[in-house]
Design a protein around this nucleic acid. Structure first.
Lengths: 150, 150
DNA sequence: TATTGTTATACTCTATAACTATA
DNA sequence: TATAGTTATAGAGTATAACAATA
């Protein structure tokens, strides 16, 4: 299905779409960069920061972290190990199923997660260029792009 | 300058800005995911695909690749090694400075880079939700966000 | 002396496969 | 037997430090 889907014009997108894709790429690069910097300020790797941020929203089983991050469950073991060694996350037993371990942020972990989130909000410099009206417009367009999942 | 910039309100951004930041985060996650998938379809890692895409735009010295990707120059050696081993990139001497090695895509590398770019354009599904007018609007907003660099 | 690219080293992230303890 | 989490392993990306060749 990925190979020969009948028509595959050499220029797949009109210039406008192509340019918008490029601009999104630029935003992605910038966002990613700032996210990594914010994580590093707390001596965390990007992956560790993402896991901590996820658990800050809601404690969950190891397996579900892997699903959210779209990686193999075996990777989560090490990431949570390192977060746990730093006292930012803890593993709790699940009363309902003794196979399951629920990962949850410690109070200190929650504090770091808040700091991370705020750094990121603070690192929203690009948005400062936009007026309130423009941000409303951007919000609408991004919501449309992302469909109903957001 | 990163530590104590006087006022640091606990809620740094208004709800609208905060939501837009979240939406951008969602777009970033989606874009990144699709980029990695497109790279994997060509049996490339994300980093390899980024280097190849960069060289496709313009051959450049190893050092400059590192600057563009914001990583240490020593990392580029290995990435280019692997691309070169696959015949996608070659190292050329710089006539002007014999310390410098210019990395450039081979014809096959250029073809793969084109395929990658087109996959990415094709993976613009989210944009399909928007009308031409909306895409124009989005382009304007993204340009504003990114300042004059885009 | 300073710079370019490389090597050596150590750590993290990643996927795969095999293991354990539960269910 | 199936599932949750782990361990073991190997490959790749990353930063740091030291090195050779060239400027």
């Amino acid at each position: 299905m990925a190979t020969s889907s009948s028509r595959t014009p050499s220029s797949r997108a009109d210039p406008l779409t192509r340019e918008v894709v490029e601009l999104i790429g630029a935003v992605v690069g910038r966002y990613y960069e700032e996210y990594e910097e914010a994580a590093a300020e707390h001596a965390l790797t990007g992956a560790q920061a993402r896991v901590l941020g996820l658990l800050f929203l809601e404690p969950m089983p190891m397996r579900r972290i892997a699903q959210k991050l779209k990686c193999e469950p075996s990777n989560i073991t090490g990431i949570v190990d390192r977060l746990e060694a730093r006292g930012l996350v803890e593993r709790r037993p699940d009363p309902a199923d003794r196979r399951v371990k629920l990962a949850a942020p410690t109070p200190e972990g929650a504090e770091v997660a808040r700091g991370l989130r705020d750094s990121l909000n603070f690192a929203r410099e690009p948005l400062a260029e936009l007026s309130r009206e423009e941000r409303l417009s951007l919000r609408g367009l991004l919501r449309r792009m992302l469909g109903e999942e957001a």
